Computed example of a mutant assay.
Amino acid sequence: MQRLILCAAALGALVVAGATRASVTVIGGGLAEACSRAAMAGKSEPRFEAPCTQSLEEEQLSPRDRAGTLVNRGVLRMRRSNWQAATKDFNQAVHIKPDLGEAYVNRGAASIGEHRYADGLTDLNRGIALGTEEPAKAYYNRALAYEGLDDLKAAYFDYQKAVELSPEWTAPKEQLVRFHVARKE
């Protein structure tokens, strides 16, 4: 019987810097859409949070758009490693729209940023089960959580799944380079 043996180079700072954020598309104009565009464009400066906060305080939003705006503001906060504020936004989004996969995926990414891998794994599994607009990011983040928990085999397969889902994305390919796969009798 053959066993699959996996070895990976040290994870180190990769986890904090590597967690990937999944934004939520909000359309219809207004501040919520501006918040969505900033999150999707990879913005991180604090000034991009203002339209999100103002939208949440002043605009009439459907539950989905309110939850999406909270996720997007949380993404902006996560990019500055403001894990607690981001997690608070994701918690509110889950409360409003418990079937929004991106809220769980991002809360999982925030947990990874705080090195709480088991908590992150629980949320990432839930987000994957619910479905997300960018599933490759969910699998990539789950691979980071598995690596943080020293489950290299599961991490390897999730990096592979991220590549399968988004072949043009280089981040999971770069992580796979660190792995050495050997079959052992």
Rank of each mutant, 00 (worst) to 15 (best):
P172G: 09
S62L: 12
R116Y: 00
N82R: 11
C52E: 06
E185D: 09
R77D: 03
G101E: 00
M40A: 15
G74M: 04
A171W: 03
E164L: 13
K173N: 07
I112K: 14
E185K: 12
E45F: 01
S111N: 13
V94R: 15
N125H: 04
R66M: 07
R37H: 04
A32D: 13
N125A: 05
R66P: 03
L31G: 11
T170G: 08
D89H: 06
C52L: 08
A182M: 14
F157G: 15
V105Y: 05
E102C: 03
P46V: 02
D151M: 06
L144W: 01
R183P: 02
A10I: 04
D150Y: 14
L144G: 09
R116D: 02
G101W: 01
V163K: 13
V94I: 15
P51W: 03
A9G: 14
S44C: 07
G148I: 07
I128K: 12
E168C: 07
P167S: 08
I27L: 14
Q2M: 05
Q175M: 14
A67Y: 01
S81M: 07
Q84T: 05
E133F: 00
Y140E: 01
E174S: 15
A145K: 12
R66L: 06
K137L: 06
G108K: 02
M78L: 09
S62I: 07
Q175H: 12
F90E: 04
A171F: 05
A129E: 09
V75C: 09
H115F: 02
Y140P: 14
Y139T: 10
V181R: 14
E49Q: 14
M40T: 10
G127N: 10
T69D: 07
G12M: 03
K184Q: 12
G120M: 00
I27E: 15
E168W: 12
L4V: 11
N141K: 09
E33Y: 01
L4E: 13
